[in-house]
Design a protein around this nucleic acid. Structure first.
Length: 347
DNA sequence: CATTCGTGGGG
DNA sequence: TCCCCAAGAAT
C-alpha cells in the first residue's frame, strides 16, 4: 500500500515539529511522571482560543508557581485568577481550579477520552487532545487548525458549522492507530505554519499531493465560514478611588460568572457587552475626569471612561484598599490594567 | 444550534 | 485603522 497521509505527515513532523515548553520531541516515549499529563492539560486549557506566543509566559509562570496538579489544587482562588490575568477567557481559570481539585482528590488524571471529557473545562477537543498527547491513545483531535487542514485536504465545501460532522469523519479516516498524539500536533503545526487561513504556503506542504483543495486551485477559500455579526459599541465608567493622597486604591472582585468573572477589578458603573453603564458615581465627592480607554472584546467594543476621587470614606459594597505601588501585581484584567495606567499617568 | 466569553498580533 | 482570528467550552 502506498504511504498514507498520516505517514507523510508524521515524517514531516519528525523533522519540522515546533519545540514548545509543553511538548516532547516527536516520537519520544511518554514520561512515567504525573507532572506530564498535568503539563499537557495545563497547556491545552491555556491554548484554547489563544496563540502559542501568548501562552508561553503564562505556562512558564504557572508551572513555576504550581509544578503539579496537587500544588495547583491547593492554591487560593485569587492567586490563580491573578496569575491568569491578561490571558483572557477567565472561565478557563475558574474551571482550571475546579478541575485541579477534582483530579487531586481522585489521585491523578483519568486516562480515557470519555473520562477526561467529564472534567470541568475540557470539551471534545481538549479531552481528545489530552488522551492522545498525554496518554498515547488513539483519539480524533479536531481543533480549528485540523478543521482547516481537513476541509482543504478533502475539499469539503459545506459551510461551518454544518460541515463539522463531515470534517470530523474525514479526520477520523486519516488518524493513525499509533502516534495519534504526534499526528494531532502535526496537523496543528501544519495548520499554524503552513496551511494558514489567508495565504497557505502550499509549496512547503508535505500533503500537497494529497490535497484536493490545492488541486482545485483555491485552498484559501476553505473552510467556508458564516458571516460575522457586527460588534456593538458600548460605553461605561470605571472608578479610581484612592485614599491617603493616592497611596491606596479601592479594588473589588467581580461576580464569579459573566465578563471578567472572578477577577479583581476597579469598581464600575455596571456596563456590560449588552448595555451601557449607568454613568452614576458610587459615592458623592469631588470627582475628576481622567479620560477614557478603548478596549475591544470579541462581542463588544468598549469605551471606558475613568473617573478619580481621593476620599477618606469607604466606598459602598465589598472591596479592599490595595497599595497603588503594587497595582501591577493586583491581577487586573487587561481592560482595568489600561484604566489603572491612565489613572497613574494622571489622566 | 446560537450566544457568550479576552486579548494581542498580523495582514 | 480596521478586521481577522488563535490548540474552544459552557449554556
Amino acid at each position: 500500500m502506498t504511504a498514507s497521509i498520516s505517514d507523510h505527515l508524521l515524517a514531516w513532523y519528525d523533522k519540522h515539529a515546533r519545540a514548545l515548553p509543553w511538548r516532547l520531541p516527536p516520537g519520544a516515549p511518554l514520561p512515567d511522571d504525573p507532572a506530564w499529563p498535568y503539563r499537557v492539560w495545563l497547556s491545552e486549557v491555556m491554548l484554547q482560543q489563544t496563540t502559542v506566543a501568548a501562552v508561553k509566559p503564562y505556562f512558564e509562570k504557572f508551572t513555576a508557581l504550581w509544578p503539579d496538579v496537587t500544588a495547583l489544587a491547593a492554591a487560593p482562588d485569587d492567586a490563580v485568577m491573578a496569575a491568569w490575568a491578561g490571558l483572557g477567557y477567565y472561565s478557563r481559570a475558574r474551571n482550571l481550579m475546579k478541575c485541579a481539585r477534582e483530579v487531586a482528590v481522585r489521585g491523578g488524571f483519568p486516562t480515557t477520552e470519555a473520562e477526561l471529557r467529564q472534567l470541568p473545562g475540557l470539551g471534545d477537543y481538549a479531552a481528545a487532545a489530552i488522551a492522545a498527547i498525554a496518554f498515547g491513545q488513539r483519539a480524533v483531535v479536531v481543533d480549528a487548525n485540523v478543521e482547516r487542514v481537513t476541509a482543504r485536504l478533502f475539499a469539503i465545501t459545506d459551510p461551518l458549522p454544518g460541515a463539522r460532522k463531515a470534517i470530523r469523519a474525514a479526520t477520523a479516516g486519516i488518524t493513525p492507530a499509533t502516534r495519534a498524539g504526534d499526528f494531532a500536533q502535526a496537523m496543528m503545526d501544519l495548520g499554524a505554519q503552513t496551511c494558514t487561513t489567508r495565504s497557505p504556503r502550499c509549496l512547503l506542504c508535505p500533503l500537497r499531493a494529497h490535497c484536493r483543495a490545492h488541486a482545485a486551485g483555491a485552498p484559501e477559500r476553505l473552510p467556508v465560514k458564516p458571516a460575522k455579526k457586527p460588534v456593538p459599541e458600548r460605553s461605561g465608567t470605571a472608578f479610581w478611588i484612592t485614599r491617603q493622597g493616592g497611596a491606596e486604591v479601592w479594588l473589588v472582585t467581580r461576580p464569579g460568572k459573566g465578563m471578567l468573572g472572578g477577577m479583581r477589578a476597579l469598581p464600575d458603573d455596571g456596563w456590560s457587552a449588552r448595555a451601557d453603564g449607568s454613568g452614576m458615581v458610587p459615592l458623592a465627592g469631588d470627582w475628576r475626569e481622567l479620560g477614557a480607554v478603548r478596549h475591544g472584546f470579541t462581542h463588544a467594543q468598549l469605551t471606558l471612561r475613568v473617573m478619580a476621587l481621593d476620599t477618606d470614606s469607604p466606598p459602598p459594597g465589598e472591596g479592599q484598599w490595595r497599595p497603588v505601588s503594587q497595582i501591577e501585581d493586583a491581577g487586573l484584567a487587561t481592560l482595568f490594567a489600561k484604566a489603572a495606567r491612565l489613572a497613574l499617568a494622571g489622566g
